[in-house]
Design a protein around this nucleic acid. Structure first.
Length: 896
RNA sequence: GGGUUCAUAGCUCAGUUGGUUAGAGCGUUGCAUUGACAUUGCAGAGGUCGGCAGUUCGAAUCUGCCUGAACCCACCA
C-alpha cells in the first residue's frame, strides 16, 4: 500500500468483488479469526452445522450473517472469540441423496454391501462436503476455520458412542417394540419431530360390516379403508344405546371375512362419524393401545416399502394407496360402502421424503426423556439460558412438559452405528459395547458361554438419528465428551450465543440443553437468538423446490457481501419472519457506495505531500465537530442497548442513519471548503477522518469488507492494527447536548428555508436575504457565531440575527422554535400561496392549542397528573399561543 | 381440540414502566444536477393505531369481548 492514495485511484463506484476477496484472504492468512484459550473472557459460538452436502441458501445467509455480526463485535470488544464451524452428516438427507445418485448410475442400494455403500457415501461427501463452508467465506463469516468439525469424523463418532453407552448404562436407553412413525420411502423409523402434520382434504368412508348370525350391519367410518384387512375388533362406546345390544356379538370384516368381537370402550366418541370404530392395532397408535387393553390380535399387513404384505391376504404387493382405491371399488360393488364424506384431516408426512407416514409396530431403540428434560426446562424458564425473543419460552415449556421418549434408531447406513451386539435371538441377548472385542467379553459374561466367538456376534444394523450427534455439538467440538477436563472445553464451555431458527427448537436446541446438563452438568450456551424464516414477498417460504429463492452467491456478486448482509438484516426484525426482497440488497449496495463516496470526498481533500493523522481532538469552536461527536456518542449508546437485546436490525438502522443522514448530509456538507476545489484545512480533515474512523469501527460487524478496505486506505496499517481486531469504540457518555441542541436548531431553520424555496418555486441558486428574529439576544449571538453554517447549505446574500427585527413587505416567513425567519422575496413571492402557507400553520397550531387547553381545563388532570406533566402542558400552551400571535402578525404584515 | 403470538401509513416494521394532535425505511409526488455519490440531493403527500366496551384526569400502550391472520402442540377414526 502506498502512503498517499490519489483520488484517481479511488473509483467513483465502490467495487466489492476483488476487495472482498482480498480482505477475506488477508484476515485468514494472518490468523485473525483463530482462537486459543488465554486469560481473556471467552466468547464461543458454535455454528448450526449445515448438511455436509448442502449448498448455501437464504436461510444460511441470514443465520450466518447474524452470527458474524455478534462475533465480530465481541472480537472488537476484546473478547476471545471462537466461532466453530462444521458440517452435519445429516443421516437421512444425505443417504437419500446418495441413493438417488446411485440410482441414476443404475445401482440399487439393496445390491450393495454396507461397506460398499459407505464408500460411495464418503466419496460423495468428500466431493460435495465443505462447499458450503467455502461459500460462507464469501459472506464474510469470521469462523475459526482451523477448528472445522464434521459430526461423522472419528473423534465425534467416539463421542457419540460414549454418550450412548453412558445413557444405556444409566438406564435411559432401551430397546422396545413400539408404535413408531415409519417412512415407507426412506424405509426407516422417524422420531415424532420428523413427522409434519398437514391438513388435507380426505374422504371419510362409511363401511358396513355384517353381524354374524343376523341380517344386521354395523357401520364404521374410516379414512384408511385398506386397513380393514388388518382389523381385529369393532368398538363402540359402552353407554351408546344405539349399539348396546351389539356388544359381545361378532362382526364380519368384509373381504377377509374375519370374525371379530364387538367390544366397548369409552375411548370411542359416540358423536364422531357413526360412533362405531374399527380397530387395527398394527396400524394406528390408538388402536394399538386399545389392542393391548383388550388383548386383541395384531396383524401387520404392510411391508416396509408401504406395499401390502402376505398377511393382508388380498391385494398383496400392491401399494397402500392403490390398494385403497381397489378396496373401495370392491366394497362399492358389494354394496358395503354406505357413504363417502369429504373431511379435512391431518396427515403425517416425512420431513425428508414427504412420504405419508405409516404408524407401525417396530422394534427400535428409544431414549427416555422425562428425567433429562427437567433441568433443561427449569434453566430456560428461570432465564439461566435466555431466549430472544422471550416468547419462545412458551412453546419450549409446552413441549418440554409433554415430552415423550425419543426414537433414536434409524434403518439407515450413513450415520453412527448403534453399538449393540447380538449373540442370540432372544429379546435380551445383546450387549452394549464400544467395539467387538469388548462386546465379546461382555457377551461371554452375560451368556455364561465362554465359548462364544466373534463370529457369533452380530452388530445392530441400524444407525442413530442425526440429532443424536448434533445434540452434543457444543461439547463435542471442544472434545469435551472424550476428555471432559481438557483445557479447551473448560475455557470455552458454556458457549455464549446460539443463533438458529425456531423450527429446530425441538430437534436441536432443546436436546442440546438436555445433553449439556446431562453430560456436563452445565448449560451449553447462555443465549439463544431465534431468527425468522426467509420468505418471499408473497410470504411463501423460500426454498429450492419452490424456485422462489435467489442464489445467494449471485446476490453477493451483484451487491457485494456487505450490501447483501445489510439487505438481509434490514428486513429482519427480531423474532419475525423476513420478507426478502432483492431491493433491500440494492439498498445495502447503495449504502456501501454512499460510504465509499464519503471516503472518496475526504481523500479528495488531501493535499499533496502532507501527512494526515486521524484525530479525535475536537475544535471547541467548531459546532459541527461537537455536534457530530455528540451524535456518534448517542448512537453508540443506543446501539449497545440494541445489541444487548439482540435487535440487530435496529442497531443497523441507527448506524445507517448516522452515516447517511448525519455524517454525509450534514457533517460533510458543513466541512466542505468555501470555494469548490480548495482542500479542507489539514486539521479539519484530520478530525473528519478521526470521526469517520469511528464510524468504520461501529459499522464493521455489519459491513466487514468495505470498512476494512477504507480503514486500511486511510492509513497504512499492519495486520495487528487491522480493523477486524481493532478496539470497539468506548466513548464516555458525556454528550455535548448544547452543541446538539444548537445545531439541531440550525438544521431546522435551514430545512424551513428550503421548504420556502421549494413551495415558492424559488431556485436554490437565488441568493437570499435572511432575517432571523430570535426570542432574545443570547440566542441571536449564539446563532450569529455559526452563521457560516448557513452558507454551506443555502445561497446567502446576507443573514442577520436579532430579537428586534421587523418583517419586511413581500417576504415569506417561517417559525422555528420561537425564532421567526423572514425571507424577502420581492417579485418572486406568490402572496396567496404564502397566505395559505401561514394559515395552514395557524390552523394546525390552533388545533394543537385546543387539545392542550382541553387538558388543562380538566380539573382532574391538573389535580392528578404529576407536576412535571402539567408544567409541560402549560409550557406547550404558552408556546402555542405565542406562535399563533407571531403567525397572525406575519399574516397581517403580508396583507399590509 | 389445546396453546402462543400478532393486528399501527400502499409495503415492511419501531413505538421502552399509559403523559409531545403517532415515527423510520422502502414506495409514491414535485423540484434539483458541470465533480464525493443519480447506487445522488431537497421538499411534500399519506395513519380517527382491526372493531366494540371498560379501567383512568389521560389509552396505540392496561382489561374484557368480537373479528381477522399466523405459528406451535395433540392419538380423535
Amino acid at each position: 500500500m502506498t502512503s498517499q492514495p490519489k483520488i484517481d485511484s479511488i473509483p467513483k463506484h465502490y467495487n466489492p468483488g476483488t476487495t472482498e476477496e482480498k480482505w477475506y484472504n488477508y484476515w485468514e492468512e494472518h490468523n485473525l479469526f483463530h482462537s486459543t484459550p488465554d486469560d481473556r473472557e471467552p466468547f464461543a459460538v458454535v455454528i448450526p452445522p449445515p448438511n455436509v452436502t448442502g449448498v448455501l441458501h437464504m436461510g444460511h445467509m441470514l443465520n450466518n450473517t447474524i452470527q458474524d455480526v455478534l462475533v465480530r463485535r465481541a472480537r472488537m470488544q476484546g473478547k476471545n472469540t471462537c466461532w466453530v464451524p462444521g458440517t452435519d452428516h445429516a443421516s437421512i438427507a444425505t443417504e437419500a441423496k446418495v441413493v438417488q445418485k446411485l440410482r441414476k448410475k443404475g445401482i440399487k442400494k439393496s445390491d450393495l454391501s454396507r461397506e460398499k455403500f459407505m464408500d460411495h457415501a464418503w466419496e460423495w461427501t468428500e466431493e460435495h462436503g465443505g462447499i458450503i463452508l467455502q461459500q460462507l467465506r464469501t459472506l464474510g463469516a469470521s469462523c475459526d476455520w482451523k477448528r472445522t468439525r464434521f459430526t461423522l469424523e472419528d473423534e465425534l463418532y467416539e463421542a457419540v458412542i460414549t454418550c450412548f453407552i453412558k445413557l444405556y448404562e444409566d438406564g435411559y436407553i432401551y430397546r422396545g417394540k413400539r408404535m413408531i412413525n415409519w417412512d415407507p420411502a426412506a424405509q426407516t423409523a422417524l422420531s415424532d419431530e420428523e413427522v409434519i402434520h398437514k391438513e388435507v382434504q380426505s374422504k371419510l368412508y362409511h363401511i358396513r360390516y355384517p353381524i354374524k348370525n343376523t341380517n344386521r350391519f354395523v357401520t364404521i367410518a374410516t379414512t384408511r379403508p385398506e386397513t380393514i384387512l388388518a382389523d381385529t375388533a369393532v368398538c363402540v362406546h359402552p353407554d351408546d344405546e344405539r349399539y348396546s345390544d351389539l356388544v359381545g356379538q361378532t362382526a364380519i370384516i368384509p373381504l377377509v371375512n374375519r370374525e371379530v368381537e364387538i367390544i366397548a370402550d369409552d375411548y370411542v366418541d359416540p358423536e364422531y362419524g357413526t360412533g362405531c370404530l374399527k380397530i387395527t392395532p398394527a396400524h394406528d397408535t390408538n388402536d394399538y393401545e386399545l389392542g393391548l387393553k383388550h388383548n386383541l390380535e395384531i396383524i401387520d399387513m404392510l411391508n416396509a416399502d408401504g406395499t401390502l404384505a402376505e398377511s393382508a391376504r388380498f391385494y398383496v404387493g400392491k401399494d397402500r394407496f392403490e390398494a385403497r382405491k381397489l378396496i373401495i371399488k370392491e366394497l362399492e360393488e358389494k354394496n358395503l360402502l354406505v357413504d363417502t364424506e369429504e373431511m379435512p384431516n391431518k396427515v403425517g408426512y416425512s420431513e425428508r421424503t414427504d412420504a405419508v407416514i405409516e404408524p407401525r409396530l417396530s422394534l427400535q431403540w428409544f431414549c427416555r426423556m422425562e428425567e433429562l428434560s427437567k433441568p433443561a426446562l427449569e434453566n430456560v424458564m428461570n432465564d439461566k439460558i435466555r431466549f430472544h425473543p422471550a416468547k419462545f419460552k412458551n412453546s419450549y415449556q409446552h413441549w418440554m412438559g409433554n415430552i415423550r421418549d425419543w426414537c433414536i434408531s434409524r434403518q439407515l447406513w450413513w450415520g453412527h452405528r448403534i453399538p449393540a451386539w447380538y449373540y442370540g435371538n432372544g429379546a435380551d441377548e445383546y450387549v452394549i459395547a464400544r467395539d467387538e472385542q469388548e462386546a465379546l467379553k461382555k457377551a461371554r459374561e452375560k451368556s455364561g458361554n465362554a465359548g462364544l466367538s466373534a463370529d457369533d456376534l452380530q452388530q445392530d444394523e441400524d444407525v442413530l438419528d442425526t440429532w443424536f450427534s448434533s445434540w452434543l455439538w457444543p461439547i463435542s467440538v471442544f472434545d469435551g465428551i472424550e476428555h471432559p477436563e481438557n483445557e479447551e472445553i473448560n475455557y470455552y464451555y458454556p458457549t455464549r450465543d446460539l443463533v438458529t431458527a425456531p423450527e429446530i427448537m425441538f430437534f436441536w436446541v432443546a436436546r442440546m440443553i438436555m445433553a449439556g446438563y446431562y453430560f456436563r452438568g452445565e448449560k451449553p450456551f447462555g443465549n439463544v437468538y431465534f431468527h425468522g424464516i426467509v420468505r418471499d414477498e408473497k410470504r411463501q417460504k423460500m426454498s429450492k423446490s419452490l424456485g422462489n429463492s435467489p442464489d445467494p452467491l449471485k446476490l453477493i456478486e451483484q451487491y457485494g457481501a456487505d450490501g447483501t448482509r445489510v439487505g438481509m438484516l434490514f428486513a429482519s426484525p427480531a423474532g419475525n419472519d423476513l420478507l426478502f426482497d432483492e431491493s433491500l440488497c440494492e439498498q445495502g449496495r447503495n449504502f456501501s457506495n454512499k460510504i465509499w463516496n464519503a471516503f472518496r470526498f475526504l481523500m479528495m481533500n488531501k493535499q499533496e505531500g502532507k501527512n494526515y493523522t486521524p484525530s479525535l481532538e475536537l475544535d471547541p469552536e467548531n459546532l459541527a465537530d461537537r455536534w457530530m461527536m455528540a451524535r456518534i456518542k448517542q448512537t453508540l449508546t443506543d446501539v449497545e442497548k440494541d445489541f444487548d437485546s439482540y435487535r440487530l436490525n435496529e442497531a443497523l438502522k441507527k448506524l445507517y442513519s448516522l452515516v447517511w443522514d448525519d455524517f454525509c448530509d450534514w457533517y460533510i456538507e458543513v466541512s466542505k471548503a468555501d470555494t469548490p476545489g480548495e482542500p479542507m484545512p489539514v486539521k479539519n480533515l484530520e478530525r473528519a477522518l478521526g470521526l469517520f474512523e469511528l464510524l468504520m469501527k461501529m459499522l464493521h460487524p455489519f459491513m466487514p469488507f468495505i470498512t476494512e478496505e477504507i480503514w486500511q486506505r486511510i492509513q497504512e496499517r499492519s495486520p495487528e492494527d487491522a480493523l477486524t481486531i481493532s478496539e470497539w469504540p468506548s466513548l464516555d457518555d458525556d454528550i455535548d447536548t448544547d452543541a446538539d441542541k444548537l445545531f439541531s436548531q440550525i438544521q431546522e431553520q435551514i430545512s424551513a428555508i428550503r421548504n420556502i424555496q421549494s413551495e415558492m418555486g424559488v431556485s436554490p441558486k437565488k441568493e437570499l436575504t435572511i432575517l432571523a428574529k430570535t426570542a432574545d439576544k443570547t440566542m441571536a449571538d449564539d446563532l450569529k457565531q455559526h452563521s457560516w453554517i448557513y452558507n454551506k447549505f443555502l445561497s446567502v446574500e446576507s443573514i442577520e440575527f436579532s430579537p428586534e427585527l421587523h418583517k419586511p413587505k413581500a417576504s415569506a416567513s417561517a417559525l422555528v422554535q420561537g425564532t421567526e425567519l423572514f425571507i424577502p422575496l420581492e417579485g418572486l413571492i406568490d402572496l396567496d400561496k404564502e397566505r395559505r402557507r401561514i394559515e395552514k400553520e395557524i390552523s394546525q397550531t390552533e388545533g394543537f392549542l385546543k387539545s392542550v387547553e382541553k387538558k388543562l381545563s380538566n380539573q382532574k388532570f391538573v389535580e392528578n397528573a404529576p407536576d412535571d406533566v402539567v408544567d409541560r402542558e402549560r409550557q406547550k400552551k404558552s408556546d402555542a399561543e405565542s406562535n399563533i400571535k407571531k403567525l397572525k402578525e406575519s399574516l397581517q404584515n403580508l396583507a399590509g
